[in-house]
Design a protein around this nucleic acid. Structure first.
Lengths: 224, 224
DNA sequence: AGCAAAGGCTACCCATGAGTAGGTAAGCGG
DNA sequence: CCGCTTACCTACTCATGGGTAGCCTTTGCT
């Protein structure tokens, strides 16, 4: 009886390996972001991916491997998105401004990527927590460099150096937290979010010396 | 063969129920803070508590119950610590200042409580995540009220109202992130940490109107 | 056609860990 | 000293879920 398969879900059969790997990673990120590492089951991931469990093991390895690869892919995506925005030949404040905007655009577009990186990766002790905190640490150092360079340029000198790391940690945390908040307020544009932080941090920092208002150049931002 | 038990660890036998419950909760907080909800095992908790597993079930209920009670106790502790610092009859900036100092003192003293609340509680979907985010939300609202009241008082009016919630979210996130950072830098006092945030946020916010430097009254803070 | 390799699955194994059954022993009122 | 309650334990059951063995099926090449 040929042609008896009415192929109802059209479960795309026999795709090349690279495609399947992408599908599986997509599913993994989605499931991990929803339940966290431990509560996520390989069965559910395979189900979401539209693939049987052994495929995951033959293609991506163990659950830990899979989680690691998910983290790695999303982290790379995020960093690339931010770096695409913050051109290193701009002045510090503009670097920060564009980096922040890119960050918020990314979070809005890839909520699940963000969730996995921000919430879930830290809870799995061991290698991943290390990788992610290292990545976060690099972000903090980058921001710290911006802050210190700007502070020194403005005449703060030693004090900037001393408190730069802490301030950078606070700023990164503020940006992350604001990202979470923004997930529940999609009507707020990335430009507004970034400008809030710029006004908070840049003003507060620079005004230790002199009171001048930072604002983005008119051509680059579009907010209400 | 009597007296053959050389009672090596002197495992305190037959204590009253209230004491055991405290011991078990202490152990639970410690283990949950280290491994997270799912990776923590009741066996390890009972081991750390110096008590057998059935005791936990007869006294505190299921694993979920136990986690909930741990969260609840630590959250209450934290809120009480903060409220003990921030007297509501002070002006907004001083409330924030003292609240922040109390917060950082608490985090330094009860690292595990903080870890459980900040990192682990969010990863367990369902009731607890709800409770904790609700608690966090209340904190944000509180801060938002301070910020808006100060902003309105300073003449910002509508703009303060509009961005107050977002700014509060950012500030709370900055405070949390700075708390994590401070765990690796114990030499930084709570006064310094709090003053960093005050200078960042309060200055940046108020200076949208006029450039005035916030600083704590000399008698209350002790920093380098 | 024939056949190897790659894509894919069902059906299982088994360690881990939540939760419990049922028993022992110490205090305490009578 | 007798029984009743409370504190407490050892030793199990059993569901969940990570991981795998073994088999089928399509495709592409000669």
């Amino acid at each position: 009886m040929p042609d008896e398969d009415q192929r109802p879900p059209e479960r795309a059969r026999r795709l090349p390996r690279a495609v399947r790997e992408r599908q599986i990673l997509d599913a993994a990120v989605r499931v991990f972001s929803r339940h966290g590492y431990h509560a996520a089951s390989m069965d559910e991931i395979s189900d979401v991916a539209g693939v049987s469990k052994p495929m995951i093991y033959t293609y991506l390895g163990s659950k830990e491997d899979l989680f690691g690869k998910s983290i790695q892919r999303e982290a790379t995506r995020l960093l690339e998105a931010i770096q695409a925005g913050a051109q290193p030949d701009l002045p510090p404040d503009m670097q920060l401004w564009h980096g922040l905007r890119s960050f918020y655009r990314f979070v809005a577009e890839y909520r699940e990527s963000w969730t996995v990186l921000h919430r879930q990766a830290l809870t799995v002790g061991g290698t991943f927590a290390g990788e992610v905190t290292a990545m976060r640490g690099r972000a903090i150092e980058l921001v710290a460099a911006l802050v210190v360079s700007a502070g020194t340029r403005k005449g703060l000198g030693e004090q900037a150096e001393f408190s730069g790391a802490g301030l950078a940690a606070a700023l990164v945390g503020a940006a992350e937290s604001l990202a979470d908040w923004a997930l529940d307020h999609p009507e707020i544009s990335d430009g507004v979010l970034a400008s809030w932080l710029m006004n908070l941090v840049w003003l507060g920092f620079n005004d230790l010396v002199e009171g001048q208002v930072w604002k983005p150049l008119p051509e680059t931002h579009s907010e209400s």
